[in-house]
C-alpha cells in the first residue's frame, strides 16, 4: 500500500501511545488490544521518533500479561499508572501527558473492555486543549510544529490533513496491522510503575452490564394501506434456498442479471 510508506521527517518526535487491555472477541482472553497495537505499530514506523507507552489500570497478573504483548513488539518499557478498578482514568492520563509533554499521542479508537465508548481520547484532548483527529493512516511529515497526516476514510480512501502539534490521533482497524509480538522481548520488557490518585467513576455503579444479547433482525416492514399488499408481503416465500442459474443466455442477458444484483446490493458507485 502506497500510504504506509515510512515517514522520514519525524526525527526527534516524541510520541506517546496509550495502550489498553484487549480481549479476544471469541474467547475473551486478554491480549494486546488490536487498535492500540496498530497505534504502537504506527509509532514504531515513525523513523527517528522516540516512543513511550502509557497504560492506566490495575496491576494484575492477567493484565500484565496482556500489556507484555506490546512489549513484544520491541518496546523496552511501559509506564503503568496504577488505578483502582472503578477509576476514571482520564484525569490520571491527562496529568501524565501534561508531564510527559509528547508532541503526538496515539491510541486506538475504542477499547475492547469496559464501557468502550471511545470518548477517552476526546476527553483527553479537551482536558489538554489539544486538537484530535481520528482514523490516522500515516504520518507524512512533521515540521515546524505541524504534522501532515493521512486520515483513513471508509473503503480505503484517504484524506490529507495538516494538524498543529501537540495533538492526539486515534487509529482504527484501517491502519496497518500490528507487527508480531515476540515472546522473548515481551518476557524481558520492564514496567515503570507510576502512582496516581484514582478518581472513582461514580456513574458506573448505576449501570447494568450483561453479556451482549443478539440484536433482533429487522423485519421487512411493508406499510401499505392495502391489506392485500401487506398479506402478500408477509406470506411471500423467504428468498434464499437454491440460487438462480442462468444457462443458455447471451452474455448480455447474463450481464444484465448480474448488473441488477449489483445495483440492488448497492455496491456500484
Amino acid at each position: 500500500m502506497p500510504h504506509n510508506a515510512k515517514s522520514t521527517a519525524s526525527v526527534g518526535l516524541n510520541v506517546a501511545v496509550l495502550v489498553s487491555i484487549g480481549r479476544h472477541p471469541l474467547t475473551a482472553r486478554t491480549r494486546r488490544a488490536d487498535q492500540d497495537a496498530r497505534a504502537v505499530e504506527m509509532a514504531l514506523t515513525l523513523e527517528g521518533a522516540s516512543v513511550s507507552l502509557l497504560h492506566a489500570g490495575q496491576q494484575e497478573h492477567e493484565h500484565e500479561e496482556a500489556i507484555r504483548g506490546y512489549l513484544g513488539m520491541g518496546i523496552d518499557t511501559v509506564s503503568l499508572i496504577q488505578q483502582q478498578s472503578q477509576a476514571d482514568v482520564v484525569p490520571a492520563l491527562a496529568n501524565a501527558l501534561r508531564t510527559g509533554a509528547p508532541q503526538l499521542v496515539l491510541t486506538g479508537t475504542r477499547a475492547e473492555t469496559g464501557e468502550a465508548s471511545g470518548v477517552l481520547p476526546y476527553l483527553l484532548a479537551e482536558a489538554l486543549g489539544w486538537p484530535i483527529i481520528t482514523g490516522l493512516a500515516a504520518v507524512e511529515k512533521v515540521e515546524q510544529g505541524m504534522a501532515t497526516v493521512l486520515q483513513a476514510l471508509p473503503r480505503g480512501k484517504r484524506r490529507r490533513l495538516r494538524i498543529r502539534l501537540p495533538a492526539i490521533a486515534t487509529v482504527d482497524s484501517s491502519a496497518p496491522a500490528a507487527r508480531q509480538s515476540a515472546f522473548g522481548p515481551a518476557k524481558r520488557g520492564a514496567f515503570e510503575h507510576l502512582d496516581a490518585t484514582s478518581e472513582i467513576d461514580e456513574a458506573l455503579a448505576a449501570w447494568q452490564v450483561q453479556p451482549a444479547r443478539k440484536r433482533p433482525k429487522r423485519l421487512k416492514i411493508v406499510k401499505s394501506s392495502s391489506a392485500r399488499d401487506r398479506f402478500k408481503a408477509a406470506a411471500a416465500k423467504a428468498d434464499g434456498g437454491s440460487g438462480q442459474t442462468l444457462s443458455d443466455v447471451t452474455p448480455e442477458q447474463g450481464a444484465e442479471a448480474i448488473f441488477k444484483l449489483l445495483k440492488e446490493e448497492g455496491v456500484l458507485r
Binding site: 437454491s242 438462480q244 447474463g254 450481464a255 444484465e256 442479471a257 448480474i258
Partner: peptide
C-alpha cells in the same frame, strides 16, 4: 451450486458485457 446467481457462459464475454452495461 453455492451461488445466488450463476451465469453459465464464457467468462470474458460475460465480463465484457457487464463492463459495457455498467
Amino acid at each position: 451450486k453455492r451461488a445466488d446467481l450463476a451465469v453459465i457462459g464464457d467468462a470474458s464475454a460475460v465480463l465484457a458485457a457487464l463492463v459495457k452495461r455498467v
